[in-house]
Design a binder for these strands. Structure first.
Ligand SMILES: [Mn+2]
Ligand SMILES: [Mn+2]
Ligand SMILES: [Mn+2]
Ligand SMILES: [Mn+2]
Lengths: 237, 237
DNA sequence: GAGCTTTTTTAACCTCATCTAAATTATACA
DNA sequence: TGTATAATTTAGATGAGGTTAAAAAAGCTC
């Protein structure tokens, strides 16, 4: 006898969540690789505890994950001497960073979201945008060079900028990029007018605490080194 | 003594995967709700086995999930009599369908992807596009009325169309929407020219097997009821 | 080199979402 | 009205990604 279960009920607009399959480069893995890449840019070789702290997990969890990443050939692990991304891992990080930044541009330039919102959204979306979509997005945007915060779409491109915290008094500089993309930080940066493309005059620097007196758009501000560290500048050409 | 772990390493461009938290409406839950909504549109009350078959999981898995959905107040479960979406579940399904269809429009109209690719991509992205982004997308697209396949952006809107499989011979009709959005199906539909907006003449119908002789753009085709079932038409006004 | 501190790993356990196999409940029909 | 069959649920397992607590390895300091 034919049961209801045997009848093929055809409702074809199917969507299934991609069950996390074994050994897949899923969202979690991607997030770790991106995090490790950023840490490595700052400090070189990365320690287990640094990954744990940055990813917001316990050192035990990070240890287990690093073991998995090493098995997947994405990081190279020398016990008690930290990790380094392999070529494959670096390539994956570059690919993700490109997609992330293109997505941010899409969200600001076409969808019309404010620049301080887009990082968090792009951070989720980046894992579900295939490289072929990213290529199409780049094309639709007219191949932009940077994300809305000034970071190069091509992560291997060296824009030659340096940190405003390293600038000396009496120079006129051009803001290139902001590398702290948290909503509140960008809000503060915007209130100072210190956005990519802006002109900054470094008026003076104080000794010991390294405060920087700047002049942007005719307005004077004093910022500390913890803010200036994430504002990258260059001599205007 | 200060250890390396105590030092706050500030690398602020943090991204973390949202660890699947208890009782959250995550991607999996959303996919089930969408699936149940589509099944309910076709057959009314939905049986556990139908959910299982549609979602591609075992009846045991579906049973467990339906229990959870009932606990979350998204479906109403009468034991051995199937389930029905609650108002809350229906509202969630509508919200997801709207975001899905807007995303498809974004992918075709702005990103430039072909109409037969966008369903699968939108199916992943829909879960990571906040309603506030969806509103912005709608605005950027000029508030489109339908997805690229003709389905209304507002899922509560009744476009008054019916299935081409129910059409009688000798009528001239307008294609409104296609409700099988699988890549290959849409490819076939396109090869027939049976896309939304096209004019179809129903030339004749055969008895018993219900084949339909149609005329689209001056070309004759014969299609079966399993294709015609997912092509929705209306009298041209 | 001994002994303490820091870092890393292992052990045991948790939730989510799946599975298979077995048990249970409802329905249909002789 | 029993009994076969179909539908559903429960039991017990798994892998991914997390937890805390404890063990082990490395690195300082004397
Ligand atoms: Mn991310
Ligand atoms: Mn950015
Ligand atoms: Mn989906
Ligand atoms: Mn569609």
């Amino acid at each position: 006898m034919r049961s209801r279960y045997d009848i093929q009920l055809r409702v074809p607009e199917v969507c299934r969540p991609s069950a996390m399959r074994e050994g897949q480069i899923n969202e979690t893995i991607q997030e770790y690789i991106e995090g490790i890449y950023r840490l490595q840019q700052e400090v070189g070789r990365v320690a287990t505890n640094e990954v744990a702290q940055y990813m917001g997990v316990s050192p035990a969890s990070a240890s287990i994950m690093l073991k998995r990443l090493a098995e997947m050939n994405l990081v190279e692990h020398t016990p008690y001497r930290g990790i380094l991304l392999t070529d494959e891992g670096t390539q994956l990080a570059h690919q993700l960073l490109r997609i992330h930044r293109l997505t941010e541009r899409l969200l600001t330039d076409i969808i019309g979201l404010p620049w301080n919102d887009v990082h968090d959204f792009a951070c989720k979306l980046e894992h579900y945008i295939a490289p072929e979509i990213a290529d199409k997005i780049a094309e639709a945007l007219g191949f932009p060079a940077t994300c809305p915060h000034g970071n190069p779409i091509d992560p291997t491109f060296d824009d030659g900028s340096w940190r405003l915290s390293d600038a000396v008094a009496g120079t006129d500089l051009l803001v290139i990029k902001i590398t702290d993309e948290r909503r509140e930080f960008l809000e503060y940066i915007e209130s100072l007018g210190l956005v990519p493309g802006a002109q900054v005059e470094v008026v003076s620097r104080t000794p010991f605490d390294g405060l920087i007196q700047i002049n942007v758009d005719g307005k004077q501000h004093t910022i500390g080194p913890e803010v200036a560290r994430y504002v990258w500048v260059k001599e205007p050409s």
